[in-house]
Amino acid sequence: MQRQGSGDDSVAVPLRAAGVVLLAAHLALVAWTSLRPVDVAWVSATNLRPLEGIRADFELGWWQGARRVVQDLLMLAPLGFLLPLIGGRLRASWFFSLVRCTAAGALVSMWIGLLQTYVPGQVVDIDSLLLNSLGVLLAHLAVVPWARSALRRRRAAGAQEVVPVAEEAQGPTPTIAGVGFAPWGEALRRP
């Protein structure tokens, strides 16, 4: 039985290890930027209505709203391609891979929102959760199908360069006549 992720349809171990290091660095950066206390004179209320915070930011100005949308889209977007890289499967269903990555992005975003409730000056916003999940989804769609097909083509090109050893050069496999499943089977038979 093979372990999951091993075999011909998996990414090389150094590439997966690099993905783990990059994921850890990215999550540390996300934690540092979103979970540090902020000194403000006042804090807005928690937003649990979808798209209400985005609408309020666009009312303050187009630049303010666009900056917030882009910032929230990009915050967890690297999860969209780092998680499949760590998984290492080249021949995975694109739909289930997309669902897994988006769900993982939503869970990370929910954990960040939960932890923000304990940090002074940080406020939970449902729009951030939605935009973070959408960013993971878009990054996955933009990178993973292309990267998997490129890696499969590269692996196929590498496999074609390998020259198989001809059986004629080694000779046929020797066989012994009269030897069955168990050579001592004749001795154990009862008359």
Rank of each mutant, 00 (worst) to 15 (best):
I86P: 00
L90T: 12
R89N: 09
H140Q: 08
V136N: 00
I112A: 08
L130T: 01
D127T: 11
A104Y: 12
F96G: 08
V124S: 02
L90E: 14
V119A: 10
L141A: 09
W94S: 12
L151D: 02
V99K: 13
L114M: 09
C101I: 11
H140S: 01
L138P: 14
L90V: 10
V99Q: 08
I112P: 14
D125T: 14
G121E: 11
S93I: 14
A157T: 13
A106W: 11
M110K: 02
C101A: 15
L115C: 08
L130N: 03
P145V: 08
H140G: 01
V136A: 01
A147M: 09
L131T: 12
F95A: 10
H140Y: 02
T102V: 14
W94Y: 11
L115I: 11
L131C: 04
S149K: 08
L131W: 02
L85A: 14
D127K: 07
Q122L: 13
R91Y: 00
P84F: 02
S128L: 06
R154E: 13
S128N: 12
S93T: 10
A104K: 13
L107E: 05
L85Y: 00
T102N: 07
R91C: 02
P145C: 01
T117M: 15
L134I: 10
L107V: 15
D127L: 03
M110L: 15
L138M: 12
R152H: 03
I126V: 14
G87Q: 04
H140P: 00
A142R: 05
A157L: 04
W94L: 15
R152Y: 00
L137C: 14
W146I: 13
V108R: 13
G88N: 08
S109D: 07
S93M: 04
V143N: 00
L141F: 00
I112Q: 07
V124L: 15
A147C: 04
V136M: 02
I126P: 05
V123W: 01
A92Q: 11
L137N: 02
G135Y: 06
A157V: 12
F95V: 15
M110N: 05
D127V: 11
T117N: 08
G87H: 05
L137P: 07
A92E: 10
G87D: 02
L90R: 11
A139L: 06
L114V: 14
G105W: 07
R100T: 11
F95I: 15
A92G: 06
S133M: 04
R91I: 12
A147E: 04
S149C: 03
T117V: 10
L138N: 07
R100M: 06
R89E: 04
N132S: 05
D127G: 02
L137D: 00
A147S: 10
R155I: 09
P120N: 08
G87S: 06
V123S: 03
T117R: 15
D127R: 02
A147G: 02
L151E: 09
G113P: 10
M110Q: 13
G121V: 02
A142C: 02
V124H: 00
Q122W: 01
M110E: 13
W94T: 15
T102S: 11
A104F: 10
L131F: 03
V123R: 04
R148Q: 12
R91F: 00
V144I: 12
G88W: 03
